[in-house]
């Protein structure tokens, strides 16, 4: 799993690249926790280059999402496609987090 991080005015855009499985999901939690410790609370998670997600990945999203919410921040998901989108649909996670087709659209929503 790799990350590309871009700080924008309204939020930090975190592109997650590769696989979010039981082995790699803790890396995601750690990355987001580190940024929250440094004061960031608004995130756009770009899943355009995410190839795979399992329940461990969803659990990591949920854990960080709950912490973001407790900080009064926001976490938007962008660019979810293909089989990863099916996992969101089947798990019901598509209704837990606001989902945007593009990072641009998510940034627009974050600025409001």
């Amino acid at each position: 799993m790799e990350f590309q991080i871009q700080k924008e005015t309204a939020a930090t855009v975190v592109a997650v690249i590769g696989r979010m499985d039981a082995v790699t999901a803790p890396e995601y939690e750690k990355k987001l926790a580190g940024m929250m410790d440094e004061g960031e609370k608004n995130f756009i998670i770009d899943f355009g280059k995410l190839d795979y997600i399992s329940s461990a990945g969803l659990r990591a999203l949920l854990m960080t999402g709950k912490r973001v919410k407790s900080l009064g921040g926001l976490m938007l998901l962008a660019n979810i496609g293909g089989a990863v989108k099916d996992v969101f649909a089947i798990s019901g996670f598509g209704t837990i987090f606001p989902m945007h087709d593009t990072v641009q659209s998510a940034l627009g929503a974050a600025e409001e």
Binding site: L62, G65, K66, V87, I90, S91
Partner: peptide
């Protein structure tokens, strides 16, 4: 799991067996 629960109510876990079946 309750797949229509809101984020505050969503339990951590429970998805594994569900995914295996699905």
């Amino acid at each position: 799991p309750e797949t229509d629960a809101a984020i505050e109510d969503r339990e951590i876990g429970g998805l594994g067996g569900y995914f295996i079946r699905q």
